[in-house]
Nucleic acid binder design. Structure first.
Lengths: 463, 463
DNA sequence: CGATTTGTACGTTCACATTTT
DNA sequence: AAAAATGTGAACGTACAAATC
């Protein structure tokens, strides 16, 4: 028994340890888990220091430590030396994003759904392809290595970004998410830490969760990772690699400067940090900046999905991989897929070779630009990040609004947006902001209507 | 320093501990890893008992224990109480299977490649589909939940197996492997143990490796898991679930009896063991036995890929999921894919609705049957498992031949087959056997030629 | 800057369960 | 059936490192 009575001690969590059987540390984990899930412990709550808890429960410090460690692995808490252990903000939040049923009355500006407008060109090409004699092979198995033709098309595609790639280093995946998950699986082990922006694409959160990889926010300045931040994370937090979205970053819509791209490439090489670069939006820029991968092709896995740029239905992504990760990447892609669809991959390749993909791309760019004009006009008195070429925009909210709150108000007004909380990594509170998808509404009218409703909410609150 | 000199002590492994810095247990892991990879320690070698090693290195028992534990997690070694710790057979073996480049001079009977013969029907249907006005949507995003139509088609498809399924419990995946990996990810956590047959589909090994799940062989009798085996594994080895292939099991070609199906269903329910049932070959049987899932639909995830039965290029699999795993499964599928191709899924649905899939299926069954007649004729004096409906056969080798050896000899004779070692789970030595794929050779002539060459090898050895 | 708070890491002890002999 | 061999797991104590005050 503890010498002192702790009944009056100010402790944020007082688990009842008496009735539990079995290993102490597991009981502790279980209680913590329950109390977080049933709401007794809210996100952000500071737990008692390990020593105090150990003292209170009359067990050894290391036993508490072990329990907390396990909880951290489960993503329930997050601790840092000096300041203590806190209940994770992610703990209760769902990682899913896109899978909500569409409500007809709501203008969808949350999920990013690419245009379908140019799909007739894709269809047309596919029909042509199917008519060919040898098309029956397109309905057989395919492999992540792709055929020579697929790989060359991939290289041609990356060339558009100013990245002269070796086609022998290209692989195919069944879409960007597939490529991302495989890349994480290939570069990292369970329990490894990977640095990301403090806000990032939720898909990487899902993938990391599935694979048991922890995401750590890297310090940023003006929405770009800093060299000190990367060095610090590497040395002090044991971060093993990075995930970055240099172009029209999700959700902040920021495009990374050339200097930072080179800095990250340099860091990757020097510190031997594998970097996964999500080039999903690269080609949406009018003059795409060169990928980080182009400065460090043997340290960076470059992902280029065609969903946003050509057609979501093609389910094809190209990966450019450092040679040392090639085998592992192939293994990971196999483990998730065995086969990519040769029909879709070949269609993608054909569209690229015949420059139809380029046409579609420019039409899409044009459309995005038109839509952003509308957004900028309506929100001209509001702080909105992202240029006219961006497929998504990031609205900074007044102090008094959290992203989540605004999301709720917007929903009541019939507009779906996503609050910054959905993109948050680690434990820091999310900024007051929401992301809007410019490409998702069915028409420019719908877009305008949606943005107007958002504007009204913003004005109302301000006054 | 140890009191005695161990220089003459019979120890199978004498790591040089002197020059290493840092944590002792990590040094040990590193040395073990190196010695296994560079061949100093061969697969199956018994390592010294933890106590002796500890004594020899003059460190604590638990330190060795911890190091060994870590190595086990990495799949390097495998230990069992009483008998000791052994170098894993998997340790150096590659988990990959299908990704080897095809050699033109070799008759491929290793990898299982489904027929392409009926693909014209698939193509025809797809062309029809693309001509429709609303086909542009087929090139947009799709979701794992599928549309109502996709799900109903899935239910109709499962009905063919005698499994009356609720379409609300059906999900879609981008192929069988995709479905399998997602299922493992949804049901289990990193470090969990899952029971399989002692020989099993290598794809499940890749997936498990990616997710950090350990596969444990379950005791079998006549190629079927026994109830005692399952109970034992559950209670004494902490096995959390099962993976089974009841129909034309890979690689043994065995089809599970009705009694065992019911037994497994009963076990699943009673012991609360999630079961992943791979129904990939179910419909290839002339009179398919009911899936285990039909006896325990709330405990079994049933996977039905169309690759083997309709067309590999469709990249579509249906999953029937217990309600309690539905959300997790959706999350896992999202994390790997975000989207299934609506074009391919809708084609699959259409083929099922219009019974074209059924036609293709019977034609494929017929073809397999014809091919097996050839195999049986040539190998009539050999012990070969599998019936005439089986897409793969399992050849029992003479005592003196290991599967691996035979594989090498066969390759020299210009035939690729897969030795039982490739399918092995855990540490027990693989039986002397090889698997041959009946469907893979381009023609019946090529098949006959391949089997004849194998026969010659078998005869030669016997005499 | 130095002291304090706080979490982290490693090695150790001991009790135990299972398998083999 | 008993004894020995062998791996497993929990809890502990100590030293340390980072963050905060």
């Amino acid at each position: 028994m503890p010498v002192n009575s702790f009944d009056n001690y100010p402790m944020s969590w007082k688990p009842d340890f008496s009735r539990h059987t079995g290993p102490k540390y597991l009981s502790l984990v279980k209680m913590l888990e329950e109390d977080i899930k049933n709401g007794t412990l809210k996100a952000g709550t500071k737990l008692p220091p390990q020593r105090e808890l150990a003292d209170y429960l009359d067990i050894n410090l290391s036993t508490v430590s072990r329990a907390f460690k396990l909880c951290e692995q489960k993503g329930l808490v997050c601790s840092s030396v000096g300041s203590g252990t806190f209940v994770s903000s992610d703990a209760t939040a769902q990682t899913l994003l896109l899978c909500e049923e569409r409500d007809r009355h709501v203008i969808e500006m949350g999920a990013i759904v690419p245009f379908t407008s140019c799909n007739h060109l894709v269809r047309q090409y596919m029909e042509k392809l199917l008519k060919r004699q040898d098309s029956l092979n397109l309905l057989s198995y395919g492999i992540p290595e792709g055929t020579k033709r697929h790989r060359s098309a991939g290289a041609l595609w990356l060339q558009k970004s100013g990245f002269t790639a070796d086609s022998a280093q290209i692989l195919l995946a069944a879409g960007g998410q597939n490529a991302l998950t495989a890349s994480l699986g290939a570069c990292f082990e369970r329990g490894d830490k990977v640095g990301t922006d403090p806000l990032t694409y939720p898909g990487v959160k899902s993938a990391a969760k599935l694979l048991g990889i922890h995401l750590i926010p890297i310090q940023t300045r003006n929405y770009e990772m800093t060299e000190e931040g990367i060095r610090y994370a590497r040395q002090n937090e044991g971060v093993k690699g990075l995930y970055i979205i240099p172009d029209f970053h999700n959700p902040t819509a920021h495009t990374m400067s050339l200097e930072t791209r080179q800095m990250i490439a340099k860091c990757a090489v020097e510190m031997d940090l594998p970097v996964i670069e999500d080039g999903i939006n690269n080609l949406l820029a009018d003059a795409p900046l060169p990928p980080v991968a182009s400065f460090a092709p043997e340290s960076v896995i470059y992902l280029s999905s065609l969903s946003k740029t050509v057609s979501a239905g093609l389910r094809t992504a190209f990966l450019h991989t450092p040679r040392r990760y090639r085998q592992k990447l192939i293994a990971a892609l196999y483990a998730m897929n065995i086969s990519v669809s040769p029909l879709l991959a070949t269609t993608a390749a054909g569209l690229i070779e015949e420059e139809i993909a380029g046409q579609i791309l420019s039409e899409r760019r044009q459309k995005i630009r038109e839509r952003n004009l509308i957004v900028d006009e309506i929100l001209k008195d509001t702080q909105v990040s992202g240029t006219a070429a961006s497929p998504l925009r990031y609205i900074h909210l007044p102090e008094s609004f959290t992203g989540k709150e605004f999301e709720t108000y917007a929903e009541k007004a019939g507009v779906q947006v996503y609050g910054a909380e959905r993109f948050c990594v680690g434990n820091k509170p999310a900024p007051n902001a929401v992301r809007i998808a410019v490409t998702t509404p069915q028409s420019t009218e719908e877009l305008a209507e949606g943005v107007k409703r958002l504007h009204k909410l913003l004005i109302k609150k301000r006054s």
